Amino acid sequence: MIKVSVLYPNNPGVRFDLHYYCTQHMDIVRKCLGDALKAIAVDQGLASADPGSQAPFVAMGHLYFDSIESFQKSFAPHAERIMGDLSNFTDSQPLIQISEVKLAP
């Protein structure tokens, strides 16, 4: 199983509408990616390791797939629609990482 993590840096003054992200944006993602998408998780950044410090990421979205090929095949036809929705909830420039899941809850 692989995980596609979309990390939104928590830069000063960043705009991020977590409610929109969790409801509207992830609904678009679910509909576009269909059965290839096995699970979704969303994290809201709270803090860094240092007490009282700001979280490095305002939010993170995690999408789970059976393989990189499954992700690419399902995402490619809908990339424009999914990526085009970003301006509706953030002005942060996301970082994307694809990982192989070795241990999960």
Rank of each mutant, 00 (worst) to 15 (best):
M1Q: 14
I2A: 09
I2L: 12
K3A: 04
V4R: 13
V4E: 01
L7F: 10
P9R: 13
P9V: 03
N10K: 02
N11C: 08
P12I: 05
G13E: 08
V14N: 07
F16Q: 05
F16I: 05
H19Q: 15
Y20K: 07
Y21A: 15
Q24G: 03
Q24K: 15
M26C: 05
M26V: 00
D27F: 06
V29P: 07
R30C: 09
K31C: 01
G34C: 05
G34L: 02
A36C: 05
L37C: 01
L37R: 11
K38V: 01
K38N: 01
K38Q: 12
A39Q: 09
A41Q: 10
Q44M: 02
G45M: 09
A47M: 13
A47T: 13
S48R: 12
S48M: 10
A49M: 14
P51L: 03
P51S: 06
P51F: 03
G52N: 07
S53N: 07
Q54V: 14
A55T: 01
P56W: 06
P56I: 08
P56T: 06
A59K: 05
M60H: 00
M60D: 00
M60S: 06
G61Q: 09
H62T: 08
L63Y: 15
Y64Q: 04
F65Y: 09
F65T: 09
D66N: 13
S67E: 01
S67T: 11
I68K: 06
I68L: 13
I68P: 00
E69H: 11
E69P: 03
S70P: 00
S70G: 05
K73E: 14
S74D: 04
H78E: 00
A79M: 14
A79I: 05
R81H: 06
R81K: 15
I82M: 12
M83V: 09
M83K: 08
M83L: 13
D85C: 06
L86Q: 10
S87V: 02
S87M: 00
F89M: 05
F89S: 02
T90S: 12
T90N: 03
L95G: 13
I96M: 15
I96N: 07
I96A: 10
I98V: 11
S99I: 00
S99Q: 14
E100D: 09
E100Q: 14
E100S: 08
V101G: 06
K102M: 13
A104C: 04
P105H: 09
